[in-house]
Design a protein around this nucleic acid. Structure first.
Lengths: 193, 193
DNA sequence: AAGTATGTGGAACGAATGTTCCAAATAAAG
DNA sequence: CTTTATTTGGAACATTCGTTCCACATACTT
C-alpha cells in the first residue's frame, strides 16, 4: 500500500552520526542533517522523530559499530592479556587515523551532555559499565592464567584501563602523535606486568 | 570623563565561566549570559567583545584559577613524588565535590571545539604542554632523588599522568564514586614505584 | 555650570533554530 | 481504474540566536 522508503536507514544513520561526531549535538542543526543525509526535513522527522531521538539512534548505532570493530580486532587471539594489548594498539591506530580529530563520539557526548541530559547520562553509564565489564573479564582470565599479576583486583585494573582509554581520546585530540600515544599505552599497561 | 564601570570584571568572568562550564559553548546563549552576569547585552559586548572573545577570556580565567589551586594544594611538600600523589588526591577531591558533574572546562572544551575552532585548539595544546611539562619536572626530580624508578622516561610518565588526569574527568562524569576514582589513581600511580 | 567621553539598558535586527503542516508523488490493495 | 496508505519536498511557523544600535545616565574636565 504505502510508497516505499527510498533511503537506506543505515546510511542515513551513518551520515548523521558523522555529523554529530564532528560538530557535537548542539553544534549540529537540522539543516546540517538534511544536507548531509540528503533527506528532507519531513522525511527525517517522519522516520527518526525529532533531533534528540535521532541523536540517540546515532549514539546506539555508533556504539554497536565500535563494539563490532573492537571485537574483530581482538578476535584473532585467545590470550586475554594479548587481547588487552591488541585492544589498545587498535585504539591508538584508530586515533591516528582520525585525521579530523573528532575524537570519540561517546567521550564527546559525555562531556557535552551527560550532566544536562538524563537520557544521555544513562546511556553513557551503561556504556562505561559495559566497557569496564569487558576489561574486567579479560583481566580476570589473564590473572587466572598467570599472565597478569594479582597485585590489584580485576575491577580496579579494569577501571584504570577504561580510564586510560578515555584519556587517550582526549590526549589524541590535543596532539595525535604516535610516539606520545604509544608511550602512554606502554606506561599504562606496565601495571599488568 | 567616562562613567565608571559598575561591575567587577572577575565576578562577571566567574559567572560566565560557570555557565560555559555547565552548558558548553554552543549550549550557552548570550541571553543566558546576561541573566547569569546581570549585565545587559551592550555592556557585555562593550567590555568583552563577542561571544567567542568572552569564551576565550573565560578559558584563560579558568586556567589561571585551576593552576593557582593546584599549586596551592601541592605547596606544602618539597618531595616531588608527594607532589604528584597530592595532586591526584586533590583532583579526585575536586571531582567528588563537582555535584553538578560538569567535569573539567578544559576537557569539555577539547572535545567540543578543538577540532573545529583553531583558536581553541591552540589554547588546548598550550595547556596540555604546560601540564605535561609540570608533571615531567616533578618526575625528573623524583627520579634524581630516587623516589621514582627510572624504568620509563620522565616524558613518557608525564604523558601517562596527564592522560590519567584527563581520563579521571571523563570517568568522574560518568560515575563520581570515591572508591572507583581512588582505585584508578592507585593503579595508575603504581607505575611510579 | 557646561561640555564631553564613556558605560548602560532595552529595543531592534536579520539570520538561524527546531518543528509542523500540507499538497504532491507513489505503490500496493480492492 | 479507483482507493488507500505512506513517503516526500518544500513552504511556513514561532522562537531563539548573536549582534547592533541608540537614547539616556553618569562622572570627570574645563
Amino acid at each position: 500500500m504505502p510508497k516505499e522508503v527510498l533511503f537506506n536507514e543505515a546510511t542515513v544513520l551513518q551520515k548523521a552520526t558523522e555529523l554529530f561526531w564532528h560538530k557535537g549535538y548542539n553544534g549540529t542543526s537540522m539543516d546540517d542533517l538534511t544536507r548531509a543525509t540528503g533527506l528532507s526535513r519531513s522525511s527525517l522527522y517522519n522516520s527518526f522523530g525529532d533531533k534528540h531521538s535521532l541523536f540517540m539512534r546515532c549514539l546506539n548505532y555508533y556504539l554497536s559499530d565500535q563494539e563490532k570493530s573492537l571485537m574483530q580486532a581482538v578476535g584473532g587471539t585467545s590470550s586475554p592479556l594479548k587481547k588487552i594489548k591488541i585492544a589498545f594498539k587498535y585504539m591508538v591506530d584508530v586515533i591516528l587515523r582520525d585525521d579530523k580529530r573528532d575524537g570519540c563520539l561517546m567521550v564527546n557526548t559525555t562531556t557535552e551532555l551527560s550532566n544536562v541530559d538524563e537520557e544521555v547520562g544513562t546511556l553513557v553509564l551503561q556504556n562505561t559499565d559495559a566497557m569496564e565489564h569487558l576489561f574486567q573479564q579479560w583481566v580476570k582470565e589473564a590473572q587466572q592464567q598467570g599472565e597478569i599479576s594479582k597485585t590489584f583486583t580485576p575491577q580496579a585494573i579494569a577501571k584504570h584501563l577504561f580510564n586510560t582509554y578515555s584519556g587517550l581520546r582526549i590526549s589524541g585530540q590535543a596532539r595525535p602523535d604516535k610516539k606520545s600515544l604509544d608511550d602512554i599505552v606502554k606506561v599504562a599497561l606496565s601495571v599488568l606486568g
